[in-house]
């Protein structure tokens, strides 16, 4: 478990290096992995109560990756806390008998609570889990669910938002990686998503909107979450940059998914290290 902003900044940089190394071997959803890397690092390596040696612990926090294509950034964070090694992820990713692939699957990876991939599923499932925890008398654990911004077009997201408020799921923390781009282009051009924070506020959520690539802001918002036994669900609207940390990928729709060359990898690593 990391503690300081410096440690977390360094850890996020390592996650980005892992992602780029993998991206030099396989096509991955690199753009969205990079945009959400900081939030995921703080969540997995600082915030969540989760012991890889005791995954059945009733008091653990639950994690659901609703934006299932961010599986690589999830797997590298799980590696960082000891679920497996970073090399396991790189070597097995998208192999026929591997544990890691484009989306996460709990048939082969027990650290995945819920298999995801199709958008608009993880959030409502997470709501059911949050309600179940309360029913079991567990008022300590939280359920964290990470969604994409393009994913907000799915109607099931808003069905779930209604239910989360109705059932007072204050143990639910929804995180929207708002990088402004979806597969076909800018969110503002593909869908009329509008002011997403205002929409969640209107549904009755506790809404926090901040820079999702700023470790200090991320940490501060996790630190100041309402208690898990409170009655209003929280949503983080994380303003991020797709491809964050790699200059030629930033805000480029074509880097939603892709593969880089060894030369590009070396250049990216130099650039990331240069920021130390």
């Amino acid at each position: 478990m990391l503690k300081t902003i410096d440690e977390l900044t360094q850890a996020a940089r390592e996650i980005r290096k892992n992602l780029l190394e993998l991206c030099s071997k396989q096509v991955i959803h690199i753009g969205g992995d990079l945009s959400v890397a900081d939030v995921m690092t703080v969540l997995w390596q600082y915030q969540m109560k989760y012991d890889p040696k005791n995954t059945g612990d009733e008091k653990r926090d639950r994690f659901v990756l609703s934006k299932g294509h961010a599986s690589a950034v999830t797997s590298f964070n799980q590696a960082a806390i000891g679920c497996f090694t970073k090399d396991d992820v790189i070597n097995e990713y998208a192999t026929d008998e591997g544990r890691f692939s484009m989306h996460s699957c709990n048939l082969v990876n027990p650290y995945v609570e819920v298999s995801t991939g199709s958008l608009g599923h993880g959030f409502p499932v997470a709501c059911g889990m949050a309600a179940a925890l309360r029913q079991k008398g567990n008022f300590e654990s939280r359920v964290y669910v990470v969604m994409g911004d393009g994913e907000q077009s799915e109607g099931s997201v808003w069905e779930a938002a209604l239910g989360a408020v109705r059932y007072k799921l204050g143990n639910l923390v929804a995180i929207v990686d708002f990088n402004g781009l979806e597969a076909d282009g800018k969110i503002s051009e593909v869908t009329a998503l509008g002011d997403i924070a205002e929409k969640y506020r209107a549904f009755g959520f506790n809404v926090r909107e901040f820079d999702g690539n700023d470790i200090a802001q991320i940490k501060e918002n996790f630190d100041s979450l309402p208690p898990a036994d409170s009655e209003v669900p929280t949503v983080f609207i994380c303003r991020t940059t797709k491809g964050k940390g790699v200059e030629f990928m930033e805000n480029q729709p074509r880097w939603h998914a892709g593969k880089i060359t060894q030369e590009q990898l070396a250049e990216c690593i130099r650039a990331l290290d240069g920021k130390e």
């Binding site: 599923h121 959030f123 499932v125 059911g128 889990m129 179940a132 925890l133 029913q135 099931s156 779930a160």
Partner: peptide, 9 residues
């Protein structure tokens, strides 16, 4: 989906 969440727990 909500029912699935209950089932997971």
């Amino acid at each position: 989906s909500f029912a699935a969440g209950l089932g997971h727990e």
